[in-house]
Amino acid sequence: MKGLVYREFYLMRKNFALTLAVFLGFLFMISLVFISTYAGNLAKDEENNQMIASFYPQAYLYTGAMALLGFSAAQNGVVYDDYKSRWRLYTYTLPVDEKKMASSMLVSRIILLVVGFLFAVVGEVVLGFAAKKGVSLEHIKNLAVMAAIVSVTFITLPSALRHKEVSKTITTYIAYGIIPFAALVFGIVKFIIYCIKEAEVRYPYLKGEEAIRKVSEPYQEKLVEIAAIAAPFIIVGSLVLCYFRTVKELERRRY
């Protein structure tokens, strides 16, 4: 199985390098913006300083999401390339059963998720020092919760095996996800409207964004607490579902 895991990483090296380059580039630009607020042009503009200060609490989430999603998705391209190169057909002759093959693919995905989390933590450390805020353990906890949520994307692995093409996989997810996504957007919009109304009543002396943030913070903290409790169950559930579905797709022996 070690050889199969090595093969996965060897084939995804280009995707890995591209994701790393984009992540580091984005992190570098955001760090420069924060540094500019006290050692550059933005230091003279108080309005910009306030805007950047309000952006800082979310910046680590953007870099974290880029690292986690980018590295986790790097393996999908290998699956599609395997069909084009007829590797999947060749595997039917190997003295390795589908369970070991599924395990090797899943181990690769787990390693990618861990790597993505480590880079997300690096992003938090770099941004914290760039903004002179230091490292926040609360932010790292939130990144761990995000990693658990991203583990749900493991299910894209058996889907890629089933559909063989990127376009078919994307179309399938759009078809199944459009209703939940619409419900999520509707819920977010309703919550924002609620926060705006509450902010006008509770904090009429504060500016719009700051007042809305004060109203929404308790709900966000409660959501993170619930997600932290659910995180282990999400990870285990995603792993189990992904493993059995991957084995099933490999056993179909379709080409």
Rank of each mutant, 00 (worst) to 15 (best):
T91A: 07
S159M: 14
Y219G: 02
R88T: 14
T63S: 06
T37C: 01
T63C: 03
S36D: 12
L61I: 14
Q50E: 15
I111W: 04
K99F: 12
Y90G: 10
K207N: 12
L42F: 12
I192C: 06
N76L: 14
T169N: 11
Y60E: 07
F71R: 01
A147H: 08
K164Y: 05
E198Q: 15
F26P: 01
V22A: 11
D81N: 15
E47S: 10
E251T: 08
L18S: 13
L106N: 05
A43Y: 09
A131M: 01
I192R: 09
P204V: 11
E165A: 15
F55T: 04
K164F: 02
A17L: 15
V125E: 00
I30G: 00
F191A: 14
R7Q: 15
D97P: 06
S31K: 03
V240C: 13
M146C: 05
A74R: 07
V5Y: 03
L241H: 04
F9M: 05
A182G: 08
E217W: 08
E138P: 01
K133E: 06
H163L: 15
A231G: 05
R213K: 11
T246D: 04
S103Q: 13
T246A: 11
F191Q: 14
R253Y: 13
F186V: 08
L250F: 02
I196S: 02
F186N: 09
K197L: 06
F154W: 10
L61P: 00
M146N: 02
A43L: 06
P232F: 08
L42V: 04
K84T: 11
F26W: 08
Y255E: 14
K168I: 09
G77W: 00
A230R: 04
L241N: 00
L27Q: 01
F129N: 06
E165G: 10
A130V: 02
S36H: 02
P204Y: 08
Q220H: 05
R86N: 12
R202C: 09
A21V: 09
F154M: 10
Y205L: 08
M66K: 13
N142Y: 06
F71Q: 03
I229E: 05
I170G: 03
I179P: 04
K2C: 09
L184F: 05
K2N: 13
N76I: 14
M51F: 14
I196G: 01
R213F: 11
Y38L: 02
R13P: 04
E200D: 15
G237I: 10
A17M: 13
G187K: 08
K141A: 10
Q220Y: 09
K164N: 03
W87Y: 10
I52G: 00
L11I: 09
L94P: 08
F34T: 03
K141C: 05
T19L: 07
R213H: 07
G128I: 06
I110P: 00
L24C: 13
D82Q: 00
K168H: 11
Y6M: 15
T169Q: 11
A53W: 03
V166R: 12
M105S: 13
I30H: 01
L106G: 03
E221M: 08
L113A: 05
R254P: 01
A227S: 14
P57Y: 08
